[in-house]
Design a protein around this nucleic acid. Structure first.
Lengths: 226, 226
DNA sequence: CGGAGACTTGATCTGAGTCAAGGGGAGTGG
DNA sequence: CCACTCCCCTTGACTCAGATCAAGTCTCCG
C-alpha cells in the first residue's frame, strides 16, 4: 500500500475548498483526481464550451462569472443564467450523457477547474461521498429553478434587478468612499434576457431603480451608495 | 448462495415496469426491495404526505394524479405542479435529507408505491444502476423546470391550458362517440395556480378556449371533440 | 327557502410588449 | 479636428393581456 498522505488536494488553495465537490476525495483516489485536474484561466468573452459540443468533463467555477447562453439557429442568443464562483457547470450534460445544450462564456476574467469525464466516472464509482455532493448540486439546481419560477411570479422586475445587481456587486464590485462600485459585466440585452423582459422594458426598470433606490447607474458603471 | 431467481419483482405487473426506478433491482437486493415495498391506494382528496413532514421514503405514482401544493401559514395553498403516473415524488426531500416542503394530495383515485427510506438507502448503496436512474429523474426534474420557465415566457395562456387539458385527458379521459371526455380533477382555482394566473383570468381563458378550439367545457365536464 | 362556495362577467387599471424615433459614445476616414 | 456611421441604449406613444375590484349567477346542501 502506497502512502498517499503527502499528496496535495487540488482544491487545497481554493476559497471554496470546503464546499468543493471534490473535497471528500482522498487516499488512493487523489492521484486520479490530480491527474486530469486542469485549471483553466478565461479571458472576458472566452467560450468555455459551445452548445451542441460533447461533454468532456465537469467544471467548477473558481473565480469570475460565467454566462450560460442558449443559441438559436439564426445566430441570436439568449442569456439563460449566470454561474457564480463555487458552482459546478456542465454536470447536467455529464449526467445525462448528452451534448451541452447551452454555451458557457466568461463574462469577466475567470478561472474554472476542469475534471475530465473518465476521471469523474472513476471517482463517482468509488466515492459515495462525492456522489452525494453531486446529488446535492442537483437538488440545488432544482431548488434554484423553483425559486426562479416563484420570483418571476411574485416579485417585480425592479426587485429582481436589484437582487441581481446586489449579487453581481458582491462578487465583482469594489468598495470606495461613497459605496460599492462595479462595471456591469453584462449588456442591457443580456440583463433583459436574465429577467425575462424586453430591452426597452429593462431600460425603464433601470431608470426607475436608479431614481428610487440606492443605486446610481450610468451606462455600465454601477454604484451602490452606502 | 440462495437462489433468488424465483422472486417476483414488485413492479412486475406495473405498466411502467421498464421505466421503473427499481427495474434494475435483482438478485440479493430483491428481498430488500420487496420487504418494505408498499402499494398505497389513495382516494380523491387523500393526503399522501404533508408539508413539513419528515421524509419516510420515496413514492412512485402507479396510477391516478397527484397534486403538489405549497401551503402558506394562513391556510391558503397553491397548487404548484402535478405528478403523473410513472413519476417519482418525494425524492427531493429524500436526497436533501429535509422535510417535505410541499404537500402531496391525490386529485383522483390513485395508487402509489412506496419504498421506505432505509430500503432506498440500502439499494442505492449497492446498485449503481438504480442510482443512475435516480440521477436521470433529477435531470428530468431540472429539464421540466426549464421547460416550464420557457413555456411561461413564450406561449400564451390559452396554449398552455390546452396542453394541460390534453395531458389530463390522456391519463384520465374516456373515449365516446363524439370525442374524449373527462371530469376535470381540478378546481378553477387550482388550474389558475398551475398556469400562474388569476382565477378570473383563467375563467376568461377557458371561455376563449371553448369558443375557439376543439373543446367543449361545462363546469368540470370537458369534451375534446374528435 | 336561504346560505355558502365556486365560478363567471363586467369595468377599470396597470405594467409590459411593440413600434418608431432619438441620443450618445467609440471608432473610422477624410 | 470634424463629419460619418454603427452600435447600444433610451424615450415616447400606443396597444394589449392580465390584475384588480365589484357584482352577479349557479349549484349544491342543509
Amino acid at each position: 500500500m502506497r502512502d498517499f498522505s503527502q499528496l496535495q488536494h487540488p482544491c487545497g488553495n481554493c476559497g471554496f475548498q470546503d464546499q468543493s465537490l471534490w473535497q471528500p476525495v482522498s487516499g488512493a483516489l487523489l492521484p486520479t483526481l490530480n491527474r486530469g485536474f486542469n485549471r483553466v484561466p478565461l479571458e472576458t468573452g472566452q467560450i468555455l464550451f459551445g452548445q451542441g459540443e460533447e461533454n468532456t468533463g465537469i467544471y467548477c467555477i473558481s473565480k469570475g462569472l460565467i454566462g450560460m447562453r442558449s443559441c438559436q439557429g439564426d445566430g441570436r442568443s439568449t442569456l439563460l443564467r449566470l454561474g457564480y464562483p463555487g458552482e459546478i457547470i456542465g454536470f447536467r450534460s455529464f449526467m445525462a450523457g448528452q451534448p451541452h445544450h447551452t454555451e458557457a462564456q466568461a463574462l469577466i476574467p475567470s478561472r474554472v477547474c476542469m475534471v475530465p469525464r473518465h476521471a469523474v466516472r472513476q471517482i463517482l464509482d468509488r466515492s459515495p461521498e462525492v456522489l452525494g455532493r453531486l446529488a446535492d448540486r442537483c437538488i440545488q439546481e432544482i431548488d434554484r429553478s423553483h425559486a426562479h419560477i416563484i420570483a418571476a411570479a411574485t416579485s417585480s422586475n425592479t426587485e429582481r434587478l436589484s437582487d441581481l445587481l446586489a449579487k453581481l456587486l458582491q462578487i465583482h464590485g469594489q468598495d470606495y468612499a461613497d459605496g460599492r462600485r462595479m462595471e456591469l459585466p453584462l449588456s442591457r440585452a443580456d440583463l433583459a434576457d436574465l429577467l425575462g423582459i424586453r430591452p426597452e422594458t429593462l431600460s425603464r426598470v433601470v431608470a426607475r431603480l436608479a431614481s428610487n433606490g440606492p443605486y446610481t447607474i450610468r451606462g455600465r458603471e454601477v454604484l451602490l451608495r452606502s
